[in-house]
Design a binder for these strands. Structure first.
Lengths: 140, 140
DNA sequence: CATATTTAGTAGGACGTCCTACTATCGGAG
DNA sequence: CTCCGATAGTAGGACGTCCTACTAAATATG
């Protein structure tokens, strides 16, 4: 229980630091993750379902995030001609510029955020990986 | 970043498992934590401010949790005679009975939840502790 | 080929978290 | 003793998460 509580507390601290770093760009970490995913995709666009799958969040969470990102002008919804059930979220020029700047801001705090050596970070990652496995998660 | 993402994913998995285990009792992990805190206090009651401080959540989150717990009949609000700014949350008989049963349910999954040996759990805890420290947190 | 199942996305709602702003009360500084 | 800052709690709102339920479209089944 002590471990579970610590995991949650660290998550709370991290998300708080990341959200603060992203606030100047009008982003939260959740929405930033969506932009990064689109940024690294070939065409700069992905079906919403793919986004949910990759980020491991509920489809309705993706709809909500894309609603906000679209309202902000960072992405736009484009119908998928190959499968008319699908909607693609496509990064706009503004969205691409923003995610680049936001990534610099996030990188700056990434080191400070853990206070661990590279070796310790790796150990921690491996332990968390085991925990994910135990819960039926299959980290890539 | 990989580490941060893993922490968040593990938190997501844990909270999901814990909430599922607590659902039969009408509780979420957040509200369960409040009940546990009250259960282990001498008088079975604490000022809302104290609850927020211990659980490290915003005062308004406590108000919200107590609202729900009160509506469920697990706690009741009692004015503090020594300091009329304060409101105490007091565990009801039903609340105390429920937290005991809920604790059994949580304990059952606590082991399975991490998939780590005792030694590994301890290592993980120490690493997370360092991460908390680096963020200005002072684990008790 | 027609129907049934699956998949994609959204609407509406419950919860938990935080923030800002406000009221009430306490306690200390003059 | 009065006023002023600190503390306690709440109201209202923004966000992110999940759930259930629904529609539309693709795919599988008979």
């Amino acid at each position: 229980m002590r471990l579970a509580t610590s995991v949650m507390r660290v998550q709370q601290l991290m998300i708080s630091a990341l959200d603060a770093a992203l606030k100047p760009f009008g982003l939260t970490f959740s929405r930033y993750e969506v932009l990064v995913l689109l940024h690294f995709s070939k065409s700069g666009s992905l079906p919403l379902s793919k986004i949910g799958e990759r980020l491991m969040v509920h489809p309705t969470s993706v709809t909500s995030a894309i609603d906000r990102l679209e309202a902000q002008g960072f992405v736009e919804r484009v119908p998928d001609k190959d499968d008319r059930r699908r909607t693609l979220a496509r990064l706009t020029t503004q969205g691409r510029a923003t995610v680049k700047k936001a990534t610099d801001a996030v990188s700056d705090i990434d080191f400070a955020i853990t206070g661990l050596t590279d070796r310790q970070q790796d150990d921690a990652y491996q332990l968390l990986r085991r925990m994910r496995r135990a819960s039926g998660d299959f980290p890539q």
